[in-house]
């Protein structure tokens, strides 16, 4: 269930819509795609009411649900694409042009004539994304598009989505639990919990406001003794690698002191990962 949420998204934006399980992410996507009917309120996407104008509206959107399939299970992938050409009434020339382009970008050549049931999850998801984009939608809704995929498949799909977003100025709304997806792709985050929006803004601002600490990793050539004043800052020790968690405002001031604790060979400063920020938010349950 979601309550009294309101937001606008600019054309061409890549927005991450995140929150814990049961927060209302998928419900929002289903409302925006016209599948569910709101009990109150008004939804406008591309000047359509998704529920009342469903038929015409769906020509303009692409939808990928990571846990469901757009493709026909028993027949070759190309037949599903041909089915969508008919369903979206695409001119043959446009269809061939996009199919060729996507086939090259996602290296689908060898997959087109294989029945969907024989594809790996990563291969199938690449095909699912193509099926959702053949008709050149103006808005794409992605619900967990990288769920269960290996690192390489995730990388390929992210690159492809970034390219589509930038080249075609298509608006993308991404729902995922994979914070690397969000971090790599989205400039704006809408954070939802228990049906309410608790943050809506740039990814960077979220991190700056909430992630108050940075990790500083120092490699010493021998084990060192950390004096009492620095002990509370020590986060972990792995062989001669010492990781300290420092407040942002103290980082520059404290690093020289830490380097003097031994013979430092290397030092690196890590920005907090969105994954860690989100964990903190989930555990605190507030912003």
């Amino acid at each position: 269930m979601i309550n009294d949420i309101s937001f606008d998204i600019k054309e061409g934006a890549f927005v991450g819509y995140i929150g814990p399980n049961g927060a209302g992410k998928s419900t929002t996507i289903k409302l925006l795609t016209g599948i569910l009917h709101p009990s109150a309120g008004d939804i406008r996407v591309l000047d359509f009411n998704p529920q009342k104008d469903r038929y015409q509206y769906t020509y303009n959107i692409g939808v990928v649900f990571g846990q469901r399939s757009l493709l026909e299970y028993d027949i070759p992938v190309i037949d599903s694409f041909l089915l969508y050409r008919a369903i979206y009434e695409l001119p043959e020339k446009d269809f061939q042009q996009r199919l060729t382009e996507f086939t090259q970008l996602l290296e689908l050549d060898d997959l087109l004539h294989i029945p969907v049931r024989k594809l790996s999850l990563g291969q199938r998801m690449r095909c699912e994304i193509v099926a959702s984009l053949l008709h050149k939608p103006r808005v794409i809704f992605l619900d967990e598009p990288t769920i269960g995929l290996d690192a390489l498949s995730k990388h390929e799909i992210r690159n492809f989505l970034r390219r589509i977003n930038q080249q075609e100025k298509v608006t993308i709304i991404l729902t995922t639990h994979d914070m690397d997806d969000i971090e790599e792709l989205c400039e704006r985050i809408i954070f939802i919990n228990v049906g309410n929006i608790i943050y809506d803004g740039p990814l960077k601002t979220l991190k700056n406001n909430y992630a108050t600490h940075k990790d500083v990793e120092i490699v010493f050539d021998n084990p060192i003794t950390v004096p009492p004043p620095f002990e509370p800052l020590l986060k972990s020790v792995d062989h001669n690698i010492y990781t300290f968690s420092l407040e942002r405002r103290d980082t520059a001031r404290l690093i020289p002191h830490l380097l003097e604790l031994g013979n430092a060979k290397d030092v690196s400063i890590h920005e907090p990962r969105l994954e860690d920020v989100v964990k903190i938010i989930y555990s605190n349950n507030s912003l």
Partner: peptide, 8 residues
């Protein structure tokens, strides 16, 4: 849902 998001 996969049918309802298509123009058919």
């Amino acid at each position: 849902t996969m049918r309802l998001v298509k123009p058919m």
